[in-house]
Design a protein around this nucleic acid. Structure first.
Length: 771
RNA sequence: GGGGUAUUAGCUCAGUUGGUUUAGAGCGCUGCCUUGACAGGGCAGAGGUCACUGGUUCGACUCCAGUAUAUCCCACCA
């Protein structure tokens, strides 16, 4: 026999992928069929394929391939995200390696370097998806900073500004001192950190008394502009209206009273630093306090830091506590765990910072998006439990800080023509801006050169929230064919950790800009963890290399491994043994093929056993298929796969093939052979979404019999339920067979020794027992 | 601090509106099987007082309350 007994995935996968590509099977154009559309969650251009991507994209490919088989016009749009912070950080690091500082080059030069990076690495991850077998329509590949994509973002910004939904605000924002930009609330991750609570004494002016304040951040005392006590706190009532001296900088600040202070915490005294804490800022505004910002953009101290100027905040924390101790003003320290905000991207500790930023009002955007999920059911979550999380966030939504102090991204289309706070206009381009600026200022002499465009770019998510619309150019050309045909899309498959960043905002954008949902079903995957439930991460080094896995087990096996335990919303405890299971399964199917194709066909009568076996399997297949379809309808992909797995392994291989298999070196009758091929092909169609390469390979080897030229574009089986009675009858027979095998084993009877089987009437049997 | 979700065989999970299930699956485990598709295999097995405590009910893995544990999300307590 020339066919190897082990399935060799590596020898066929690339070949079939190229074959599908060459025949344009992945490409979709609008036609009369029903569309089925998925837009990929665009991975970062800087990214390389990790387990999360593998899980996510396998699921999308399973859904797309099944839809394609079901006769829908399946379109899976791939692409990448410019990921402003992450990419800019990488470009900055690369420049540093070349001895170039970002601050030493112009914006234009920097962007040239960034594009150079993008062009070099931007497609790596998409190429890796091909190894997985993803059947994306590569002709439609988009990038969030493609010219039309960026133009869409700018148009949307201008539109929202003109609707009065975008405003500038001097606010306390999350500042990432490493990336030197603001972050949205969602990009801040709170971590428990072990720190100290410092008890610092402030001398009371004109007395020997000291007021002791507890703080976790002694370095910020230089920005203190008041001490706050509770109005009902009798311990301090004698100090009302007095002032204290801030140690080290020896500034005199007032003692104020406010009920905000917690009597129980620390000493009951609160230092107020309006520039560096959200609550302190509120107190400051309420009590008309001065605001002293003591930090530079990189969180080193500025001139307010006196002799600490230029030093990093954490260095200063140590040094200043030492100095205070020397002065006898550090009364004590005690261990204290508090939550510290860190940057999702750079891991730097976030600094609350006051600055001028752009915000998007969210309340009116949220309303239709809440209705769509919670009331009308236009948008559905799988699993449903995430609707609660969604509701909670949406009902407490806060305005979105959309400006970022970066260069890589869509530059905010605001143009300043003067120093006044209102001396700016918002327009899609400089010419339009000039016109508006002349109107607004009443100054006809203004020139383009008098306009200064805002230095900041927009948050990356401000472009990705348009993704399902903008990939079809639905913002700029709302009437175009593609958009009208493919939008709204069908399913979205993504991870729950970007539910707020991305999913919720896409829903809002869908209703705001198109008056329609962006997609109907949202499948939220779990997070891929290792066997010890730890999240897979680069730093832990517990994530297997995706491409190595594929190389070692074959893409189909890895897909099966991933799908086997991918119940929606459940975390996946990844274990390579799952890939091995997939590989074993692939081999099982392969060997079923080997067996069948090795048979010699003759025109001899069909045996009764074969006839009944085939009838039974057809009924079983029909029943299982309807279960599988039901699982798909409920997005229970792992259950669907398990059903196929058992159907093929247990029912088809273990039972049916054993029943029809001719004796050694004996021929098989033509009818049985043809029926087996037909049933095997039905199995392959069902298998195809999960194991596209193996199924296509076997299908093509049966090629001379297949009507369609390729499995990928054949059809999902439709089998009407035939004689349902066959199933329980067969179950009875198989139970008897198992029982007989068991008796053989107990009595040590050889398999080749024929046994006499007698049927005893059940009624009589009971009578006998009654005696 | 506030909410969500979970707790079923060694592991990962099903168990759909309370009574056809004596509680299921896959993997793992145990025993036996060397020529004829496949040891990446075959056959036959073992294994669970459904977290705990009450309650509702003729009847609860399934509904309710509480406890414990786990996990996630949200929140400005110095």
């Amino acid at each position: 026999m020339s066919i190897p007994s082990k399935y060799e995935a590596e020898k066929v996968e690339d070949q079939w992928y190229n074959y599908w590509m060459d025949n344009g099977y992945f490409h979709s154009t609008p036609d009369s069929r029903e569309p089925y559309t998925i837009v990929i969650p665009p991975p970062n251009v800087t990214g390389i394929l990790h387990m999360g991507h593998m899980l996510n994209n396998t699921l999308q490919d399973v859904l797309i391939r099944r839809a394609r088989l079901m006769g829908k016009n399946a379109c899976w749009v791939p692409g990448t995200d410019h990921a402003s912070i992450a990419t800019e950080a990488k470009v900055v690091a690369r420049l540093k390696d070349r001895g170039i500082e970002k601050s030493d080059i112009s914006r234009e030069d920097f962007l040239d370097y960034a594009w150079e990076w993008k062009n070099e690495y931007g497609n790596v991850i998409l190429e890796q998806l091909k190894k997985l077998g993803c059947s994306c329509d590569w002709e439609r590949t988009k990038f969030t900073m493609d010219e039309d994509m960026s133009a869409s973002v700018i148009r949307v910004f201008v539109d929202l500004y003109n609707k009065g939904m975008i405003y500038r605000g001097y606010r306390m924002v999350n500042w990432d001192p490493e990336a030197r930009t603001t972050l949205s609330d969602e990009e801040v991750i709170y971590e428990e950190r072990q720190g100290l609570l410092y008890y610092i004494a402030y001398p009371v002016e004109g007395s020997d008394e000291q007021l002791v304040v507890a703080t976790t951040r002694p370095e910020t005392i230089l920005g203190d502009t008041a001490i706050c006590i509770h109005p009902q706190d009798e311990r301090y009532s004698h100090l009302k209206d007095k002032r204290v001296i801030v140690p080290i900088c020896n500034r005199s600040i007032p003692i104020i009273e406010d009920e905000y202070v917690d009597l129980e915490f620390g000493t009951g005294c609160l230092k107020v630093t309006p520039a560096h804490d959200e609550n302190d800022k509120a107190l400051g505004e309420k009590h008309n306090l001065e605001t002293i910002d003591i930090f530079n953009a990189d969180a080193s101290l500025n001139s307010h830091g006196i002799h600490y100027e230029g030093k990093d905040r954490f260095v200063v924390r140590k040094e200043i506590s030492a100095e205070l101790e020397g002065l006898g003003l550090l009364k004590k320290t005690e261990p204290y765990t508090n939550k510290v905000g860190t940057s999702e991207r750079t891991k730097a500790v976030i600094e609350p910072r006051l600055s001028e930023q752009w915000f998007l009002k969210m309340d009116t955007l949220a309303k239709p998006a809440i209705d769509a999920v919670l009331h009308t059911g236009e948008v559905k979550f799988f699993p449903k439990k995430f609707e609660n999380t969604y509701r909670h966030w949406m009902e407490n939504i806060r305005d979105w800080n959309i400006s970022r102090q970066l260069w890589w991204g869509q530059r905010i289309p605001a143009y300043y023509y003067g120093k006044g706070s209102q001396d700016y206009v918002v327009a899609e381009d400089a010419d339009m801006a000039l016109k508006l600026a002349r109107d607004k200022s009443g100054n006809d002499k203004l020139q383009t050169t008098d306009l200064l465009q805002d230095e900041d770019v927009l948050d990356t998510w401000f472009s990705s929230w348009l993704w399902p619309i903008s990939v079809f150019d639905g913002i700029l050309k709302p009437e175009n064919e593609d958009f009208k045909y493919y939008y709204p899309t069908s399913d979205l498959v993504t991870a729950p950790d970007i539910l707020f960043f991305w999913v919720a905002r896409m829903i809002m954008a869908g209703y705001e800009f198109k008056g329609q949902r962006p997609f109907e079903n949202i499948y939220l995957t779990g997070i891929v963890r290792d066997k010890q439930r730890r999240k897979m991460s680069k730093s832990l080094g517990n994530s297997p290399d995706a491409l190595e896995l594929i190389a070692h087990y074959g893409a189909d096996s890895v897909r099966v491994g991933l799908m086997l335990s991918s119940a929606a919303g459940n975390d996946l405890l990844f274990d390579e043994a799952l890939c091995q299971q997939g590989k074993n399964f692939a081999n099982k199917v392969w060997n079923a093929f080997r067996l069948i194709q090795g048979w010699e066909i003759q025109d001899i009568p069909q045996t009764e056993a074969a006839k009944l076996g085939l009838e039974w399997y057809r009924a079983k297949l029909a029943k299982t298929l309807s279960e599988i379809n039901d699982h798909f309808d409920k997005y229970r992909i792992s259950d669907a796969l398990m059903s196929v797995y058992k159907l093929v392994w247990d029912d088809f291989c273990s039972w049916l093939l054993e029943i029809v298999k001719p004796a050694y070196q004996q021929p098989i009758d033509r009818i049985t052979y043809n029926t087996i091929i037909e049933l095997f092909e039905a199995n392959l169609r069902i298998l195809h979404p999960f194991m596209p390469f193996l199924s296509e390979e076997i299908w093509q080897r049966f090629g001379k019999r297949a009507k369609e030229q390729a499995l990928i574009v054949s059809s999902w089986p439709v089998i009407t339920l035939e004689d349902q009675e066959m199933i329980p009858e067969f179950e009875f027979a198989s139970t008897v067979i198992s029982a007989v095998r068991n008796i053989r084993k107990e009595k040590n009877l050889a398999n080749k020794e024929a046994l006499e089987l007698r049927l005893i009437d059940k009624e009589k049997l009971n009578q006998r027992w009654d005696v």
